[in-house]
Design a binder for these strands. Sequence first.
DNA 1: CATGAATGAGCCTTCATTCAT
DNA 2: GATGAATGAAGGCTCATTCAT
Lengths: 209, 209, 209, 209
Amino acid sequence: MKKSVPSLVKDPELIKKRREQMVKGAVRLFIEKGFHRTTTREIAKESGFSIGTLYEYIRSKEDILYLVCDAIYEEVRDRLAYHLDTNNEGIDRLKKAVAAYFQVIHDMQDEVLVMYQEAKSLPKEALSYVLQKEVEMTEMIEKVIRDCAKEGVINVDDDARVKLVAHNILVQGHMWTFRRWQIQKHFSLEEYTTLQVEQLLQGVDHRPI
Amino acid sequence: MKKSVPSLVKDPELIKKRREQMVKGAVRLFIEKGFHRTTTREIAKESGFSIGTLYEYIRSKEDILYLVCDAIYEEVRDRLAYHLDTNNEGIDRLKKAVAAYFQVIHDMQDEVLVMYQEAKSLPKEALSYVLQKEVEMTEMIEKVIRDCAKEGVINVDDDARVKLVAHNILVQGHMWTFRRWQIQKHFSLEEYTTLQVEQLLQGVDHRPI
Amino acid sequence: MKKSVPSLVKDPELIKKRREQMVKGAVRLFIEKGFHRTTTREIAKESGFSIGTLYEYIRSKEDILYLVCDAIYEEVRDRLAYHLDTNNEGIDRLKKAVAAYFQVIHDMQDEVLVMYQEAKSLPKEALSYVLQKEVEMTEMIEKVIRDCAKEGVINVDDDARVKLVAHNILVQGHMWTFRRWQIQKHFSLEEYTTLQVEQLLQGVDHRPI
Amino acid sequence: MKKSVPSLVKDPELIKKRREQMVKGAVRLFIEKGFHRTTTREIAKESGFSIGTLYEYIRSKEDILYLVCDAIYEEVRDRLAYHLDTNNEGIDRLKKAVAAYFQVIHDMQDEVLVMYQEAKSLPKEALSYVLQKEVEMTEMIEKVIRDCAKEGVINVDDDARVKLVAHNILVQGHMWTFRRWQIQKHFSLEEYTTLQVEQLLQGVDHRPI
DNA sequence: CATGAATGAGCCTTCATTCAT
DNA sequence: GATGAATGAAGGCTCATTCAT
């Protein structure tokens, strides 16, 4: 399911290492000036090698964007998965999940921003792969909601509503970075999290015991 | 507060007319291929005049982007304002506002998408002007919420919560276009509106009498 | 049947003029260092305009090569046609034709050399168009042979032989430029022409009265 | 008289073996895409070793072209020499020589084509060496003609005419590959050979007894 | 005012060659 | 001797912008 970017270099260890450098450098630059205004030479330099070497590990500039988006998604998902793993019970399961998710987004603000703003420049096929990750993220959140519903701590009758709530949560995460110039002026992350959870819970007809 | 784009042409009527052509053409192209992949030549052609003429009415390509973003925001705001004008009472005021807002976004899906995706490429100053419009939009929604609160049909105690709810509504509008590949597969606009309003109302602790 | 190279410039007069400059400059450079070792920048400079302007009149470097080959063939053919026009009778018709052809090749030695050496780098389709010109040239020579045969001054029974003789003549023309480092050391153009005609005539079983 | 290409490797056996691989691979690629469009990496791969190894046996890409041209010439000449060795008498000596030469060219069509098309890219000095082989070939043919003349089976008075006829034969060989898209459509190799010999013989004033 | 030809900085990418392992 | 990762000069091409007509 994962699209692999071909490389002229054979050693897989080296490919991994160099691509990590590359992604790191590219993210820094994309954050600063966006994908289109960043040149491949700048990326090479920021990554610590020559333009020739850069092209030993990718075929085109778009490959870098794909690598960047892929890496960011991977990290977001891994971090989230890690936090969701903790055994929470009852309504806490959802609360902690939201908090964890918001925290991950917060920690990776710039990266998340870049990814959502530049992914559209991906070639069609690559874009599909990346969007698939978004679907996976949604499903992770959906699962938490469904689990809570099964336990009876929240009341979300139909599947459509589960989907909607999941999307809402996801988007409220993005909102923390996309509207930061407004939101973060008024709320700390904790406040934001608390308030959104309250909104959410009432909304899903949570009845405290 | 509005940033005016200088033109070499004097006749204001003409400026208006030409820029309307220009924005219309540019939006079509930006929707299709994005700001960076669209050339000024293409914009001129799509607008129905020569590249030379194009530059009689703007100073740089970025000016076009500003004009486009400005025009789209203007239209969204105007349409929304028009719908909010209708005299609604009680909780309907909010319901109708949300519905109207979602409808406007729906009607202008492509334009909204383009604006939010490309605005980041605006020069700093121009970006500020455009973001200001976002603030205005938020305030329009905030006002509706506050009015409802005053009437007592909803219960939003503090100002922070008002802001948050307003932002949530706004963002749920964007979500309708940004995640359309997911959302619009599962919901019609009416369903989406109904469900989101339900979520919202429960969330703002609306107690039906 | 002629493949036209698209241009961004509209004025046909200008296109013609600029392309003539371009072909002239390119031929000079191709003669000196070949197609692959000549850069588009050099061609632009040699033609007297900027690289940007160059690309207003062509789409790719290969277009230049096509223009060059086309122009050379056109000129060779036109010159040849002009000489064949003269009313000759009897065996003179053939003698004069060969002489005229050799003379044209001689006058355009460098151009002919370049064309035959570089045409292979043309994209497939363009190559076909150019090879078509070669066919036309062959047919012109074939006609002369056939006319002499009809008159009875030479004796070439079947069509295959006509073709062969025509090709031989054509190739003996190329030989004058391709093997010049050998041939032109030993013969003047007149000597070469005389000798080849002699060979040719005996070969086609010419019986002097 | 043979220009030797320096190698970093000492073992002459190895040099020979590797260079044979190299030439074989390079010819395949040159036939397919020409010298300039073939990369050294491709040649290394096609030859079965690494780019690093390739450069152990040559100094530059042009060395490969030289090796290729040299090898092809060598083979053509050897094959031709082998066929000329047979003891023929009278006019058969010439007939068989031409037939043998055409056959060799026919058997090595692609190689011959490549050599004549790419040799021009050789550095000046290397080109001289290669052209020298052409001279040798011409001399081989000249000798056959002269031998026949001495025997009195053909009548070629002066040396100039011998040279010319030799060149004609040589070039008619090339013609079989260079104009194959025309010639081979109309003639089989036997037909071509027969017809060309007829032309030739009549031309050199052959009087059958 | 309108036109469109001219400009050239700058971009992405390739590839012959080197050299440490 | 063999390998292949690293290098960077150089090439083809684009496109925002200008300016003479």
